[in-house]
Amino acid sequence: MNSIQAPFPATPSAAASAGTDLSPLQAVIFDWAGTLVDFGSVAPTQIFVEAFATFGITLTLAQARGPMGLSKWDHIHQLLQEASIAAQWQTAFGRSPTDADVDAIYARFMPMQIAKVGEFSAPIAGAPELLTWLRAQGLKVGSCSGYPREVLNQLLPQAAAAGIAPDHVVAGDELLAGGRPGPYMALANVLALGISDVRACVKVDDTVPGIEEGLNAGMWTVGLSLSGNEVGYSPEDFAQAPQAEVNARVAVAEAKLKKAGAHHVVRSVAELPAVLQQIAAVMRMGALA
């Protein structure tokens, strides 16, 4: 049976005894689904399929995952630009999809997502211990999401009860400047957390737009392959998947995230401490993001 382990000290005393030095890093800014919670980023994917189905439009899970990382309105808009989906819309409604149609699907999507997101609030293995460990090193913990604020308001209390409570949270619909792949949500964390240098921040994400967000903000970026959208296993599917299949999917995800510009790619946040130590070490030698 496949599983993820968290190979890092979970307490301040253990971290100190290990001689960890993360200076001059100041903050780590995380995505949510597929990064801190919801292994496989299952919640948003399934709801996109269900929301489109109410309009008579059939999406595959692979299609639904395609634009993941964007704000949900932008995600729906992007899906409607895909030729096969646009053709279905033309057949069903006799015209090409418009922004008003995006609004209509979004209005249908939102209550469905709000109702379901709590079912997928379980932390990814090692995530609560990681946040404890980061704070023991004196780092701030930021976060941002493609989820709208209404959805996050349902997710955050349940995640906090399970040990996932970043110092700051930015939702995908609350900045006038927009969302990913722009740098705005990441930079909003910088302002809120009082970070003095964006180059002392690490953006951690499982999607290409999330990696691009970090790069556009001038940060170090770490992509997550196995736990996130690009591999797309539910926890149950991952536990039973043949190792060769897992490795093949991970390889494809790693290549995609590296092509997007990620400085490092690991399987999940459980492997992040060693990467942060590598980044800190090269920074101390004068390297910049």
Rank of each mutant, 00 (worst) to 15 (best):
S3W: 12
I4P: 00
I4A: 08
A10K: 14
P12S: 13
P12C: 11
A15M: 10
A15G: 09
S17M: 14
G19I: 03
T20N: 06
T20C: 05
S23N: 04
P24T: 11
Q26T: 03
A27M: 01
A27E: 00
V28Q: 00
I29Q: 00
D31Q: 07
D31K: 05
A33I: 04
A33L: 08
T35L: 01
L36V: 11
A43S: 15
T45N: 09
T45A: 13
I47P: 01
E50W: 00
F55S: 04
I57S: 03
I57K: 00
T60I: 09
Q63N: 11
A64C: 07
A64I: 04
P67N: 09
M68N: 09
M68F: 13
K72R: 14
W73G: 01
H75L: 03
H77I: 02
L79F: 06
L80H: 08
I85V: 15
I85A: 05
A86Q: 14
A87K: 11
A87T: 14
Q88W: 04
T91K: 14
A92R: 14
F93P: 00
S96N: 10
P97E: 08
A104P: 00
Y106M: 09
F109P: 02
K116V: 09
E119N: 14
S121I: 13
I124G: 07
A125S: 15
G126V: 12
G126T: 13
A127Q: 10
E129D: 15
T132R: 15
G138I: 07
G142S: 05
C144W: 08
C144D: 09
Y147D: 06
Y147N: 10
P148R: 08
R149Q: 10
R149V: 08
R149A: 12
E150Q: 14
N153D: 15
Q154P: 02
P157R: 07
A162K: 15
I164S: 14
H168M: 13
V169Y: 07
V170L: 10
L175V: 07
A177Y: 10
G178Q: 08
G182F: 07
P183L: 09
L187I: 03
N189R: 12
L191Y: 10
L191I: 10
R199F: 04
A200N: 13
D205V: 09
D206N: 13
T207V: 12
V208N: 02
P209G: 10
E212P: 02
E213M: 09
G214W: 02
L215H: 03
M219N: 07
V222Y: 00
V222R: 01
G223K: 02
S225I: 03
E230S: 05
V231L: 06
V231P: 01
G232M: 06
E236S: 14
D237F: 01
D237K: 11
Q240A: 15
A244L: 12
A244S: 08
V246Y: 05
V246D: 04
N247M: 05
R249P: 01
A251E: 14
A251M: 08
V252E: 12
E254G: 08
K259H: 15
K259Q: 15
V265Y: 05
V266E: 02
V266I: 15
V269Q: 03
V269N: 04
P273V: 05
V275S: 05
L276E: 00
Q277A: 13
I279P: 00
A280R: 00
A281H: 14
A281Y: 11
